[in-house]
Simulated assay, not measured.
Amino acid sequence: MDGWWHESFHIFAIENLAGNTFDIEKLKQVLDAKQQGYQKTTNVINYLASHHRHRLLAEASFRTLHPQAAFKRAKWGAVLLVTAVKKPMMWMGEEFGHSTRQTPNQPNKLLWSLFENQPNHDLLAYYKHVILLREKVPPLYTQNIGFFPYNAATKVFAYYRWSDEVTLAAVVANFSDIYLSGNCIPNFPAGAWHELMYNKILEVA
């Protein structure tokens, strides 16, 4: 086979993004398919939505969230998608928050009028940013991934990617709804870090 869908990415990512659970082991499997026994992840295709799955904001667990929280977590889903090991697949409409549910054998036309809403417009801008990040940060092209010690109480989860040139990229995620000030990540590498975006995707030369 030339490639395969990483179905667990879709399932486990949504469970954690929606706030239904905070499962570190499942998050690791979301980000690194090797944790599920794949010997090679060259052609693993990660996705949040597809032609036979509801888009993120149409998922039942997201429809119960306050809209502001749902869009915030949708942005974090985009970060997971582009920083996971191997290929991200973005289903049309996901990038601007299309939220109508899929019906078997029925068309599901994109609602371009959603661009008139600020949250949808902001989500599209965010997706453009993370796509550019994927293009510009070399470690995201590799199969290398490691995980920092986590704090189950605060629901902070952090991981890092690296390239052969020893360039590091780190991602720090707060899966809670509580703002954390002064939170410390154990064993975080020292260096001249540059913050590339609000969600704490960082790169060090």
Results as ranks from 00 to 15, higher is better:
Val85Thr: 12
Leu57Glu: 07
Leu180Arg: 09
His98Val: 09
Ala78Ile: 03
Asp32Leu: 07
Ser113His: 12
Ser8Ile: 08
Leu56Ser: 00
Met1His: 14
Phe71His: 03
Pro107Lys: 08
Gly146Ser: 08
Phe96Gln: 06
Glu25Pro: 01
Lys200Arg: 14
His6Ile: 02
Gly182Trp: 02
Asn46Arg: 03
Glu15Arg: 11
Tyr179Gly: 09
Val204Tyr: 02
Ala58Met: 03
Glu116His: 12
Tyr159Leu: 09
Gly77Met: 04
His98Pro: 00
Leu81Thr: 03
Tyr47Val: 09
Lys128Arg: 15
Leu31Asp: 06
Leu48Arg: 05
Ala192Leu: 13
Ile185Leu: 06
Lys72Arg: 14
Glu195Arg: 12
His6Arg: 10
Trp5Glu: 07
Asp177Tyr: 04
Asp2Glu: 14
Ala158His: 03
Gly97Trp: 01
Phe175Pro: 04
Leu31Trp: 06
Gly37Glu: 00
Val171Leu: 07
His121Leu: 11
Asn120Val: 01
Trp4Glu: 11
Glu135Leu: 13
Arg63Cys: 07
Leu168Thr: 07
Ile14Gly: 05
Leu56Gly: 02
Phe12Ala: 13
Phe96Gly: 01
Pro186Gly: 09
Ile45Tyr: 10
Val172Ala: 04
Ile145Lys: 00
His52Arg: 11
Arg73Val: 02
Gln102Glu: 14
Val137Ser: 00
Trp91His: 14
Leu180Met: 03
Leu48Trp: 01
Gln118Thr: 14
Lys200Gly: 00
Arg55Gln: 09
